[in-house]
Computed example of a mutant assay.
Amino acid sequence: MNQRRLMIMRLLDARKKFTARELAERFDVSVRTIQRDLDYLQQLGFPLYTEVGANGGYRVLPNRILPPLQLTEHEAFGLFMMMEYLQQVPDFPYGSIREQLSDHYFSSLPSDVQDRITRMSQHIAFLQNHSKQPEALTTQIIHAAMEKKQIKFTYASRSGLKEIEVYPIGIYYEHGYWYMPAQKRERVLLYRLDRMQSLAILHQTDTSVPTLKEWLISTDDREKIEVTVRFTDFGARLAQSDILFKLMKDYEWRGSVPPEEFPFMARRLLAYGPEAEVVQPKELRELVGELLESSLAPYRQDF
């Protein structure tokens, strides 16, 4: 394609209307040459249409295909909003390119689409509270998981700082935090990335480590205990957005939970306050009660 035809595409893609004579004068060629150029572009699939009449001319279809991807305008708006949302997620893998990619993509769009996106952005916001992650941690973990390599890091647990060596399975993002399931000997343990420090990728490899998708669909063969949690009406509405309790029925959630997960579940339930009550087992019920007592202790000192 010659330079003139590329320039015609850019002119028309800005949603301006041109007559064949105006284009001919702009490029100093005959009207017939311009008409051949326009016929050529239409044969390539460029979505031109003609407006007839005294004020007629050539335009591009309103929901046309946009560069750099083969997207319609609505798809372009949606993609830009998705990039805006991802910028709110801390330490997104390869996140250093997000702003650059967003700017590059935005600048490649026709000016009228840029204007509409700018106006649209004044009417939408993504308000979330996110934890602050160490820079580039997610990217390092993904590389280690792909290569089946062991990692070493310092972890801030409830009992203090610990040196951990595990094989990462992958990462997932939930409720404002990144989590890393990792294999240690025969067990899979879960770590929160915002509690990790000083990560290093080691040379040891283990090809038996599953992928994250394989782990998510695998059967948990740990010993489990039946758990029942009863919610109030308001608690049930709160729990609708909680993936842990998505299978609730008639204000009750029932499921089998490994005892090792009780501390995690108890803290999760603590956030519901009086809107959720553990019916069984006794161990989990007592654990939630202990957390409530420790939460009240600082306030009781005032009485």
Rank of each mutant, 00 (worst) to 15 (best):
Q133K: 09
Q133D: 15
P134K: 12
E135C: 01
A136H: 14
A136T: 05
T138M: 02
T139R: 03
T139Y: 02
T139E: 01
Q140A: 10
Q140S: 06
I141Y: 07
I141E: 06
H143M: 11
H143F: 07
A144K: 05
A145N: 08
M146A: 10
Q150K: 15
Q150V: 06
I151S: 03
I151V: 15
I151N: 08
I151G: 05
I151P: 07
F153R: 07
Y155Q: 08
A156I: 13
R158L: 14
R158E: 14
G160R: 10
L161D: 15
L161Y: 13
K162M: 14
K162F: 09
E163Y: 04
E163I: 15
E163Q: 15
I164D: 08
I164M: 15
I164C: 11
I164R: 15
P168N: 09
P168L: 00
P168D: 02
I169C: 11
G170V: 05
I171E: 04
Y172V: 02
Y172K: 01
Y172Q: 01
Y172P: 00
E174R: 13
H175T: 06
H175I: 05
G176V: 04
Y177C: 09
Y177M: 13
Y177L: 14
W178G: 06
Y179S: 08
M180S: 06
M180L: 05
M180T: 04
P181Y: 03
P181I: 02
P181S: 04
A182Y: 03
A182Q: 11
Q183A: 12
K184E: 12
K184N: 10
R185M: 04
E186C: 00
E186L: 11
E186W: 03
R187Y: 03
R187I: 00
V188M: 07
L189P: 03
L190E: 03
Y191S: 11
R192I: 03
R192F: 02
R192G: 11
L193F: 09
L193V: 09
D194L: 07
R195L: 12
M196E: 08
M196W: 09
S198W: 07
S198I: 00
I201Y: 06
L202N: 10
L202K: 12
L202M: 14
H203P: 02
H203F: 01
H203Q: 14
Q204L: 13
Q204P: 02
Q204A: 15
Q204V: 06
Q204G: 04
T205N: 08
T205M: 10
D206W: 06
T207G: 09
S208G: 05
S208V: 03
S208C: 01
V209P: 08
T211I: 00
